[in-house]
Design a protein around this nucleic acid. Structure first.
Lengths: 172, 172
DNA sequence: GATAATTGTTATGCGGTATATCAAATATCG
DNA sequence: CGATATTTGATATACCGCATAACAATTATC
């Protein structure tokens, strides 16, 4: 037998030959996830759904979705911007942002003002009510939602998780 | 003045008074994300979209979505199961699983077989073609998709990320 | 054996996302 | 200047993911 090393051989050799985690196979009515539990995208999506669900619960008294909350946050931090700029920053397409703003404006949380410089664009502003709702939402999010996340993960892990997700969202 | 300590006082005191990260404020055309970058759900969703996008690109030659890939994986690991069981494990509602199976079956990747025990249920099986496609998909996912993730994050971080996401997906 | 529960299915609606298109306003360039 | 191109907000539309109600066939329960 020769000593030829194929790519597969090399890969196998370089791997620390870890034992398969054989998912705990509890109940026989519980299916085996197999390599699904190692798929980052799979866990990512499931975690995202859970986190959004908790967000909605925590901020339910104010009737704000995560997307709406992010719009209010952005308007507060970036006064004087128009629809195109806000939408683009959030990864929302302009056509889809129209109905979103309609909903917020109909609740008197923000307003569109025609720009004097460029009469095509609408300058977006938070109303007083919008600022008040945002302030209350921030407290609910911090004290109920994020607090629970930090509790479950631990502060250090929470920070590390945030950093990794930001890296993925950027340079991937 | 008394020495009463409110909950807010305690929280403020226990916090290591960290400096605000003042997002790098580069270009003046770039908007300030503000506390948005600290919102886990926000980064979670953006990262998830990027990861799914990369998955689709890597496995494009086989024309498989993440959801379809997860179904094939589950069928392979759990032979003899019916639609209800597979769908429930993946968090897919039975009505929505029907069209998904139709698509896979029309491509001859899997098949429904009437159970002899319970003639209501359909036992799901991978076809030979389904097994072949799954095998190729696994390689693409491991060598292109997950490999890139591990490269960007580093192996240790990748493992830590996976663990934290799994924890969130479970006990949250 | 009558009633209830389960399985797969269809129909349907809602929200998120994507593209094409339009009128008004502005920018560009000959 | 004036013709053309671009930008902005908006509408219409379509597709996908996700959710509920309802149904026929089959099986379970009592």
């Amino acid at each position: 037998m020769t000593v030829s090393k194929t790519a597969a051989d090399a890969a196998r050799a370089s791997r620390p030959l870890r034992r398969e985690p054989v998912d705990p196979a509890g109940d026989d009515s519980m299916l085996q996830l197999g390599e699904l539990s190692g798929l980052l995208g799979y866990s990512l999506k499931r975690a995202q759904l859970k986190v959004f669900e908790d967000f909605l619960r925590c901020v339910a008294p104010l009737q704000l979705t995560p997307a709406q909350f992010s719009v209010l946050l952005l308007l507060d931090k970036n006064p004087g911007r128009n629809q195109t700029e806000i939408a683009a920053t959030l990864g929302i397409l302009r056509p889809n942002f129209v109905a979103m703003l309609d909903a917020l404006e109909s609740r008197d949380l923000c307003a569109r003002m025609r720009s004097t410089n460029d009469r095509r664009s609408h300058i977006l502003v938070l109303t007083d009510k919008g600022r008040a709702v945002l302030a209350r939402a921030k407290k609910l999010v911090a004290n109920k939602h994020e607090a629970r996340l930090i509790e479950v993960l631990g502060p250090a892990n929470h920070a590390a998780l945030l950093e990794m997700l930001a890296k993925l969202a950027q340079e991937f």
